[in-house]
Amino acid sequence: MEDKVHDIPVHHEHHEMLPVWFFIGVLLLIYGVIILYTGLREYSHPAPVVLARYHASIWGGILLVVLGGFYTLRFWPRKRRP
């Protein structure tokens, strides 16, 4: 009996998967930019929170931008060499 499966042409297309760390990096970077922006705005319009003088949003924003930037660049999707 003929095995029909072998007659079916199969096209193998290689799909590169996005590294999850790239996704996490982009997410952290976006959060960082938003929080850093709000932190800078709070210089002229301080938020009604305790210890506002320490500008937690600026430090938190910088940390997230650095961390997110590192992961975004380190795991940037590149085409695999043939």
């Binding site: 929080i35 709000t38 305790v50 210890l51 937690a56 949003s57 924003g61 997230l64």
Partner: peptide, 12 residues
């Protein structure tokens, strides 16, 4: 969170 974090950080 509400005591120490302003908009942005509070959302995070």
């Amino acid at each position: 969170l509400a005591r120490y974090c302003g908009p942005g950080l509070l959302g995070l």
